[in-house]
Design a protein around this nucleic acid. Structure first.
Length: 282
DNA sequence: AACTCATGCGAAT
DNA sequence: TTCGCCTGAGTTT
């Protein structure tokens, strides 16, 4: 499930599976049927991710824009002898086949699946903040936006126009790793803290692309190092605070706290991430 | 079997 | 601020 690392991994895998190949394009569910018919039997040029947005470019300057939302999925199955009948509501199916084997990808439950022009793609990208997974990203844009805003840092990190690709797990975890309380105003987060958080996100999210999961605990806090049972959970990775409400902090043993911020549950340790206490105004 | 909640976000109210 | 998307894992009945 999708934060930025999921989309970048998917872009890489779709490119490997389909780029420069002729593809059959269909919409078994029907909701993308007209567009699929226009694309059918053309060639995929590439797939690319910006933040949580995925763009699959076909010949003729046609771009399929996909956003998975909260529970969408785009599953690639390579090297099958025959392509099975669709299971569930498949919005978009891509199939590349030679005489022997077929590779197919099924898109289910996306928030967005639309056919657009490169110019329209550009307009979406222009609305996004820098993406830690893009080598050309400029972290200074994020730093400036945060430091000009009195909104809580926990809200700003989820704002895709401030920073693209971070979702609810990376938000909670990067704040913990840098000992920043989620409600601290952007204006009160030090520049060097924001720069360190950016660098940290680059490393964490690149690892996420490699492994397909979100792992944020440092070596000294892994299950093996601490002799604790590994997390058994739907996202699979080892984390400090995300969805650990009431359980002891791995660093200080205080129970993890939660509240709602930017319409989503946020998690933090009240000791490791002390509350912001503004100095009295003169 | 039914229900709840979730790594998200745009549209409707 | 609430709703809808309409998937899927985990929990409760």
């Amino acid at each position: 499930m999708p934060e930025g690392h999921t989309l970048h991994r998917l872009a890489r895998d779709l490119t490997d599976a389909f780029a420069a190949r002729g593809v059959r394009v269909s919409s078994p569910q029907g909701r993308f049927a007209d567009e699929a018919a226009l694309l059918d039997a053309s060639t995929v040029e590439s797939a690319e991710a910006w933040g949580k947005h995925l763009f699959v470019t076909f010949t003729g300057e046609r771009v399929v824009h996909v956003h998975l939302g909260l529970y969408g999925s785009f599953a690639i199955t390579a090297g099958v002898e025959s392509v099975p009948a669709p299971v569930g509501q498949v919005r978009l199916r891509l199939v590349a086949a030679d005489d022997e084997r077929a590779t197919y990808a099924d898109l289910r439950g996306p928030t967005a699946c639309t056919l657009m022009t490169p110019a329209e793609q550009g307009a979406i990208v222009d609305r996004l903040g820098p993406d830690p997974l893009r080598p050309d990203a400029d972290p200074e844009r994020m730093v400036e936006r945060v430091r000009r805003s009195r909104a809580p840092i926990g809200t700003l990190l989820m704002d895709q126009s401030v920073l693209a690709g971070v979702g609810n797990v990376y938000r909670a975890e990067v704040l913990f790793r840098h000992r920043v309380h989620p409600l601290r105003p952007g204006t009160a987060v030090r520049r060097r803290t924001l720069e360190a958080m950016w660098d940290d996100l680059v490393g964490l999210m690149e690892e996420g692309v490699r492994t397909g999961r979100i792992d944020t605990v440092r070596p000294e806090h892994t299950p093996e190092a601490m002799g604790r049972p590994p997390r058994q959970d739907d996202h699979g990775g080892e984390v400090y605070v995300y969805r650990r409400t009431g359980q002891p902090c791995f660093v200080c043993e205080r129970p993890v706290r939660t509240d709602v911020l930017a319409t989503r549950n946020v998690f933090w340790c009240a000791r490791c991430q002390p509350a912001y206490r503004p100095r009295a105004v003169q």
